[in-house]
């Protein structure tokens, strides 16, 4: 039923979209390219795009200078831990809101979201003191907890929008079939919501991975994740473009690849129930 699109129009569309796409992607591409240049080529005028001697020396230097593996591992633990913990807390809450809604459900949901609007900096010092008291400063556990709390409202909201799509009759059928509440959630709701849970997981993993306020201010040497690793390159000694690019590439590539592969899932989750 779709009308035949003239190939001329398709060519124009394609050209326009690719131009815009490449423009948007260019800073990332440029960073990756620069990471393989020598420092001299990196600042050459006019700039060189591909025709240079590719080198891995920047990566070697960066790996030598800092313990990349530790930062990476901290990022994985902190982002993964906070996301999984958040989902465990959020699934029951989202179940309640989606399937046993009350007059207050929407208010609670919006209230949860509004806690995200509290400026982190306003409570930085109290959290700092609490962390010192509890010995959580510069610990992965501490960051897992803080980032979990940070993202909890988003996780609850995303899961809620997914759960709402699931007909309540199916859960009632499970209840009639003799399932307890635990079994109902474990055997019926969760498997049905797998795509939603997956995209919630992904999005929050990415948000936690990129979080740069608490991770910068609550860590020192031990628990610092990749955000802190890269921030160390903002000091003047880091002002070597090729090395900066190498470090940047190493900080973003893991999540970039994860994002590309899970793009479809992610996009559906990103809409926060805005579409449909």
């Amino acid at each position: 039923m779709a009308r035949a699109v003239t190939s001329r129009r398709k060519i124009i569309n394609t050209a326009a979209a690719w131009t815009v796409g490449l423009l948007i992607f260019f800073p990332i591409l440029w960073t990756i390219l620069t990471s393989f240049k020598t420092e001299a080529t990196a600042i050459a005028d006019p700039p060189v795009f591909i025709g240079f001697d590719w080198t891995l020396e920047n990566y070697a230097t960066v790996l030598e200078r800092s313990d990349y593996a530790r930062f990476l591992w901290n990022s994985i633990i902190i982002a993964g831990g906070s996301t999984i913990l958040g989902i465990l807390v959020a699934v029951p809450a989202a179940w309640s809101m989606a399937f046993v809604p009350s007059k207050r459900t929407k208010d609670i949901l919006l209230w949860m979201l509004s806690t995200k609007m509290l400026p982190a900096v306003g409570v930085l010092y109290p959290i700092y003191l609490i962390f010192i008291k509890l010995g959580l400063l510069d610990s992965r556990t501490g960051l897992v907890i803080v980032l979990m709390l940070m993202n909890l409202p988003i996780i609850v909201w995303m899961l809620y929008t997914y759960f709402r799509e699931i007909p309540g009759e199916i859960l009632e059928a499970a209840r009639m079939d003799g399932a307890s509440l635990k079994e109902e959630i474990l055997y019926v709701l969760t498997p049905m919501a797998v795509p939603g849970i997956a995209s919630t997981l992904l999005l929050n993993f990415i948000l936690a991975w990129n979080e740069a306020f608490w991770t910068l201010n609550l860590t020192a040497a031990k628990a610092a994740p990749l955000t802190a690793f890269i921030a160390s390159y903002s000091s003047p000694e880091g002002l070597f473009y090729a090395k900066l690019s190498a470090a940047s590439t190493m900080a973003i590539v893991p999540i970039l690849i994860l994002g590309w592969f899970s793009q479809k899932q992610l996009v559906s989750g990103l809409t926060f129930g805005a579409v449909k």
Binding site: E169, I170, E172, A173, S180, V194
Partner: peptide, 21 residues
């Protein structure tokens, strides 16, 4: 008595089958 314990079975208008099974 909760629904599970009443020994009744129900067939819903939407069938309410478990789509993942």
């Amino acid at each position: 008595v909760p629904p599970a314990k009443r020994g009744l079975a129900m067939v819903f208008q939407s069938y309410a089958l478990y789509p993942h099974m």
